[in-house]
């Protein structure tokens, strides 16, 4: 197993991000089971909870097998990681303590509350509590985030507002910075100083981009639980990192995760577009280098 783990060349950041993606995948399986088999939220939560426990054990095992490795990173001034951690701490405080805005078009909290109240998935309209007049579209029905959050509430006993608006965004914040940390490895190699400066600037830029609902800063600070935020802050940077380093399995995972958290055109989402773009980019680069070698 140690050989397999070393061959994949993964780090703790990879474990965290793929762990988040795996949780989404498990929630999707539980969600579909609940939706099509009519299972209650209790059963759905247990399915997801069981998987989460196995995943946690697996991650601990992999991390133990990885052991301490000398990645030969260029060391940096201690102030940089401390400054970065301080910025993250302030963001975590903000997310945990501040009242969340109501985002137009977002009905996640209503849906989670309804799932828990009705003990089932998509049984009534979350906006009125009454029956649906028209059938739901399949590409909305398959989105699993409300089920995931409902399972978290059921297993932990937390109120939906606390779990969805304050706890989940903290997990997304962690995933965001781990994804950007991996991306910084592509951009700056083993230079830790540049990588931490990059992360500090990412944290600052996210504070500045809070002007509109589609900006990344708004997603992190006000809507960390939304599918578009998970896509923009975790999946897309991770897809870029995977595609630029030709670790296509990461891109594949992100494409599948996006299908579960955002509405897409028959599963064709942004991660797939980015992966396609990077494949074309690599192909063009290889052709160019072949031509240069031939000449």
């Amino acid at each position: 197993m140690q050989q397999f783990v070393k061959k994949l060349d993964i780090s703790f950041a990879d474990l965290y991000v793929t762990g988040v993606i795996a949780c989404i995948g498990a929630a999707e399986v539980a969600h579909l089971a609940g939706l099509f088999l009519g299972l209650g939220m209790g059963t759905v939560s247990l399915i997801w909870g069981g998987f989460f426990a196995l995943l946690l054990l697996f991650c601990i095992l992999v991390w133990w097998k990885l052991g301490r490795r000398d990645r030969k990173l260029v060391p940096c001034h201690k102030g940089l990681p401390i400054g970065f951690l301080l910025l993250i701490f302030v963001q975590m405080l903000y997310i945990f303590c501040m009242q969340q805005l109501v985002t137009p078009g977002d009905i996640t909290l209503e849906t989670v509350t309804t799932f828990l109240q009705e003990d089932g998935i998509h049984r009534v309209n979350p906006l009125t509590g009454g029956a649906y007049i028209n059938p739901l579209s399949m590409r909305y029905k398959i989105l699993c985030l409300p089920t995931l959050y409902g399972a978290v509430c059921k297993l932990t006993g937390l109120l939906p507002e606390i779990a969805v608006c304050h706890i989940v965004p903290l997990i997304v914040l962690g995933g965001c910075y781990f994804s950007y940390y991996k991306l910084s490895g592509i951009l700056f190699g083993k230079h830790l100083g540049k990588r931490y400066t990059f992360l500090i600037l990412v944290a600052l830029v996210l504070w500045m981009l809070d002007g509109a609902t589609y900006l990344e800063g708004y997603g992190l600070l006000q809507g960390g639980y939304m599918g578009t935020t998970i896509r923009g802050l975790i999946l897309i940077p991770y897809t870029l990192q995977g595609g630029l380093s030709k670790q296509w399995w990461k891109c594949a995972l992100c494409v599948l995760a996006e299908l579960c958290v955002c509405m897409t055109l028959w599963g064709l989402g942004f991660c797939l577009l980015i992966t396609t773009g990077l494949v074309i980019l690599h192909w063009c680069e290889e052709r160019k280098s072949l031509k240069e070698a031939a000449s």
Binding site: Y180, L183, L187, F198, L199, L201, V202, V205, L206, L209, Y214, E216, T228, R231, G232, I236, P237, L240, F270, L273, I274
Partner: peptide, 11 residues
């Protein structure tokens, strides 16, 4: 979101 705006600015 297709363009990694945050990453480019930080870069």
């Amino acid at each position: 979101t297709l363009m990694p705006v945050v990453a480019v600015i930080a870069y």
